Simulated assay, not measured.
Amino acid sequence: MKKQIIDTHVHIWNLQKARYQWLEGDTSILNRTYQLEELLPEMERTPVAAGVLVQAANHIADTDLMLEAARAHDCIAGVVGWLPLADPVQTAQLLETRFLREPYFKGVRHLIHNEADPAWLLQPAVLESLRILALYNIPYDVVGIHDEHLQTAITVAEKIPSLRLVLDHLNQPPIKDRQRFGTWGELMKQAAANGNVYAKISGLGTASGHPEAWAADDILPYVRYALETFGADRCFLGGDWPVSKLAGSYARHWEMYTGIINGLLRGPEAAQVFYGNAARFYNVEVAIVQH
């Protein structure tokens, strides 16, 4: 098997070491500790060569947990961590004293979808922090779940055009409503007008509206739309483990994604979506090997 994919969206969390407020009261399979060692045997059975760990809580403890895992496992290429963006002075201090010298620190994210204000990113202090990220060429992951989040991302891109942004999970396309493509589609076009905005094809099984029975045909139109809108040079893939377990196994997700991409794109373009774009966006190097 050719190991040719960078999985740009892997989560881990440890309920004994950090607090994850969004899991408190959750009755699903997600409300327990998930460590990287649990995923590794599954990853071996897929074309995934390496992963990027992505923050799951708005505090440094979560980032430290991910960095510790990255140092311990060669299959992790980088970490998208958290910074206190509402405090630009502290953000700058943490970067200068810790994270700029940390080789695995490759990006930043904040759980904006858990904030009451969908325009949380547009606060002056947060924008100042995002400008600091742009200055250091550190990309930002936007985890939006509705149109207001997408509009906010568009405004951020307009205000800070040098900041590289990626829209996690395609900002929740209207798959369950079978809408083609409505307000989401128009906003995605606006977002794509900025060449520094990327699209992360991830989390679509859980976004389908029927995670127990979703199929490739359910998500194919939205993946095709993302590729047509952003181009094959600004899209990449993420598995969203362990959240993806709500919609089936890790291997099943990658079977879906690879089948769709190989059906839509020719070899060199598919390789960009599988590997090249993610390596460039997160500034990581991963060996592509034949197993």
Rank of each mutant, 00 (worst) to 15 (best):
H146E: 13
A226L: 05
E269P: 00
D240I: 03
D147H: 10
N277Y: 13
T152I: 04
E148F: 10
F181E: 11
L167N: 05
N283V: 04
Y140E: 04
P211F: 00
P88I: 01
L135V: 05
A18T: 07
W13T: 05
A192Q: 13
R98M: 01
Q179V: 15
S129T: 07
M256T: 09
G203N: 09
V52P: 04
Q290I: 04
G209Q: 12
N283C: 11
T229N: 06
L85K: 08
N114D: 12
K176F: 11
A271F: 03
H146K: 13
V284M: 08
Q123I: 01
L227H: 06
P41H: 11
A226D: 05
L39V: 03
R178D: 11
G51L: 06
D87P: 00
R252V: 00
L122T: 02
G239V: 02
Y225H: 13
G209W: 13
K106R: 15
E96R: 06
K200H: 14
Y250H: 09
L170N: 13
N277M: 10
I260V: 09
L83W: 02
T183K: 15
A61T: 04
I29K: 15
H149L: 03
T46H: 09
E38W: 13
L39I: 05
L187D: 12
G205K: 15
A70P: 00
A192F: 12
